[in-house]
Design a protein around this nucleic acid. Structure first.
Length: 158
DNA sequence: GCCAACGTTGGC
DNA sequence: GCCAACGTTGGC
């Protein structure tokens, strides 16, 4: 069982946006980074847990727990000429891009900020903390996943 | 809004 | 195959 991190700018698509959808489920479409995409096409399996992270915002943070709801399927945006992520090289017979379904499981008790993550010695090697990291979908070690859930359950004021 | 890091594209 | 230009992602 793999654990995952999925990232979005909340101005584009936020945790609240996900919660508002039917079944709180969305197709993680539009990813055109090969490495991130390959995880969706080849590795992610329904039921695997994923942290939902808000990037490019005033206080970047992990805000919720989600799960893979459906396996990688052809990303519909690649076939749509009016879409930003349209790919003229893709066809229905030979899709180039795949996208998984992501479903909200629960909001964290409180957001765990990027600043806090940086403060945890055992999270040092976290992909999220890597300078220049641009993987909008990537795996995370089970221990790190659990540590972040622990951090969310602790009130820093106590 | 700025700047850095990285991936992709395209000329050669 | 190299590398500069460009677009995108990301933190601050």
């Amino acid at each position: 069982m793999n654990h995952w991190v999925v990232k979005k700018k909340p101005t584009a698509f936020s945790w609240d946006d996900l919660m508002a959808l039917p079944d709180a489920t969305v197709t993680w479409a539009g990813v055109r980074n090969y490495q991130a995409h390959n995880y969706m096409r080849d590795t992610m399996r329904p039921g695997e847990p994923a942290l939902f992270y808000h990037s490019q915002t005033k206080t970047p943070a992990v805000v919720g727990v989600a799960e893979v709801a459906s396996p990688g399927r052809p990303d519909p945006t690649q076939f749509d000429p009016s879409h930003r992520r349209y790919d003229p090289a893709a066809s229905f017979e030979k899709p180039r891009w795949y996208a998984v379904g992501i479903r909200a499981v629960r909001r964290l008790e409180r957001p765990v900020t990027l600043r806090e993550l940086r403060g945890e010695p055992e999270l040092e090697s976290l992909e999220l903390l890597r300078r220049g990291s641009m993987l909008t979908v990537h795996p995370i070690a089970a221990a790190a996943f659990l540590r972040i859930l622990q951090l969310a359950a602790v009130n820093p004021a106590e």
